[in-house]
Design a binder for these strands. Structure first.
Lengths: 215, 215
DNA sequence: AGACCCTTGTGAACTGATGCACAAGGTGTC
DNA sequence: GACACCTTGTGCATCAGTTCACAAGGGTCT
């Protein structure tokens, strides 16, 4: 019954998936989930589910499974889902706009409260209800809206500068879609999503299987 | 000089980053890159770069480094970058539209050639130059455009059905943005990008450091 | 040619994550 | 209460990936 010590990074990355899986269980019905069911819902295997949950100090009941409500509570607790973390989107191009409008963010406690863009035509307007400011005002904006997370959806060239500005403004969590490496202080957490690279990985396997076919 | 045997998955995932890093070197100038430089550009450490490249059977010259052009060629070769893989985007909501319009895809050999959406108002129109079809026509479309990759940007509920249709149509590579687990045959490669989950991972760390501060 | 410098390529140790397999310990039934 | 059944929790073996550290060897300068 370890009261939540160090949780392996790989486990942390799966917790949101479990939480997502639990959505298919009604609230307040005292439903139970087995590690097998949850594994199916999250797309992993049962042993992993059990080991992951054991890091949370969660206890199911042997022979029965986990109480869905309690499990939801436990995982939410660990992830800090109770908090709402305001997000500022930097770069309102195609992608930025889509993200600002993405209901999945607000639903999960990450409301997009403001945005920046270098296009003078956009500055000062509302795009999908999100106020767009000049990049130079980033510091101010972060403070005013209490933003905790920065999303970088600028062109690659502007990404590092934007990251620097976010860090200077006190943002410690960045999700970047720019195809570049960002250098930031150690205490800043960056998650980088390179969509083109993702496709190239798929391409590798396509290429491979085509080669295999030919021989 | 192993002629490209099995390449570890982790290495494959980094090859696109190296290729990206090499973009900062001019073509045809016989420039050389050291593993150190490339490591910096790709955001990994030098030992990893060298080991990764060794899987390709690539040879740099000791004391000097790698020839930038040749390295580009080697990595491109391994990734099969020479091929063009047409992409069909399923679900032209905010995200789908942004992806269809994403220049990074076309630039890297993944042109978006067609899309599907269930909204009758969109079917038959061109959105950003991409023809939108009914979901039911997916099989036909894949054949007509020779699509090799399917992107799923539909709501979660429609994702599995879309995946099934893609698989039935012969698509063996899927990139999914839907927050669900997709079940597909073993020979189909799925890369799942859950943006909300990504933010929740950031949220975990925010939560953690806030807890640490308080104590 | 020889000496020195530099960076590669790689064996080997290490780290973290995964999966197995089974004892522990609940629940329900007779 | 005893027995059968089930699913958890976890020690251990295994595996993949990372990092270290150093010998191998090409380049350059004298």
């Amino acid at each position: 019954m370890a009261p939540m010590g160090r949780i392996p990074e790989a486990t942390v990355a799966r917790l949101p998936l479990y939480l997502r899986g639990l959505d298919s269980f009604p609230v307040g019905v005292a439903a139970t989930v087995s590690s097998d069911e949850l594994a199916e819902l999250a797309g992993v295997n049962a042993a992993k589910v059990r080991k992951d949950l054991s890091y949370l100090g969660t206890y199911g009941t042997r022979g029965v499974g986990y109480d869905a409500d309690f499990l939801r509570f436990q995982i939410s607790q660990a992830l800090g889902v109770a908090n709402v973390w305001p997000v500022v989107v930097c770069g309102m191009g195609n992608l930025g706009r889509a993200l600002a409008n993405h209901t999945g963010f607000t639903d999960r406690g990450f409301p997009v409260v403001a945005a920046t863009d270098s296009d003078p035509a956009k500055i000062g307007t509302l795009i999908d209800g999100v106020p767009v400011h000049a990049p130079g005002e980033l510091g101010e904006i972060v403070a005013r809206y209490n933003a905790a997370v920065g999303v970088i959806s600028t062109p690659a060239e502007a990404a590092q500068g934007t990251a620097d500005a976010l860090v200077a403004a006190g943002v410690a969590s960045i999700m970047s879609f720019a195809p570049t490496v960002l250098s930031v202080p150690d205490d800043v957490e960056v998650r980088s999503v390179d969509l083109a690279a993702e496709l190239q990985i798929l391409g590798f396997h396509l290429h491979r299987s085509r080669l295999a076919e030919e021989s």
